[in-house]
């Protein structure tokens, strides 16, 4: 489930990036790389797990599915958080600087 959720996040972020390309004001490219990197790594993890468990890999316990789903959602949230921090630090639109500057003036 973690792999599947991250894969969906990677696909969605890539579609969003492509829709806005070549502009990169929202730096969605970063999000794509994060999720694709994690998807590839979890794919390897899944292959090794399948090699170990065989067909049982596709019949997980409901509790394990729930835990994996929560983990997947939490991983997606962490990816978004990393992206948000990078976005605010880089501040490509200058909105944060403008807001801070305005605040200082007041």
């Amino acid at each position: 489930m973690t792999l599947l959720i991250t894969l969906f996040a990677a696909i969605i972020s890539t579609v969003v990036w492509y829709k806005n390309a070549p502009k990169s004001e929202m730096q969605t490219g970063i999000l794509c790389w994060i999720y694709w990197g994690a998807t590839l790594m979890w794919t390897v993890d899944a292959v090794f797990e399948y090699a170990e468990l065989g067909s049982a890999f596709f019949e997980p316990e409901p509790a394990a599915v729930l835990n994996d789903t929560l983990l997947g959602l939490a991983a997606v949230a962490l990816g978004l958080l990393i992206w948000l921090i990078v976005l605010l630090i880089r501040d490509p639109k200058g909105n944060l600087r403008a807001a801070l500057f305005k605040k200082k003036k007041e």
């Binding site: 790389w33 999720y35 990197g37 790594m41 962490l78 990393i82």
Partner: peptide
């Protein structure tokens, strides 16, 4: 770099 750092962070 981004794929490696991002993937490693989530892992």
């Amino acid at each position: 770099n981004r794929m490696l750092w991002g993937g490693s962070a989530l892992l």
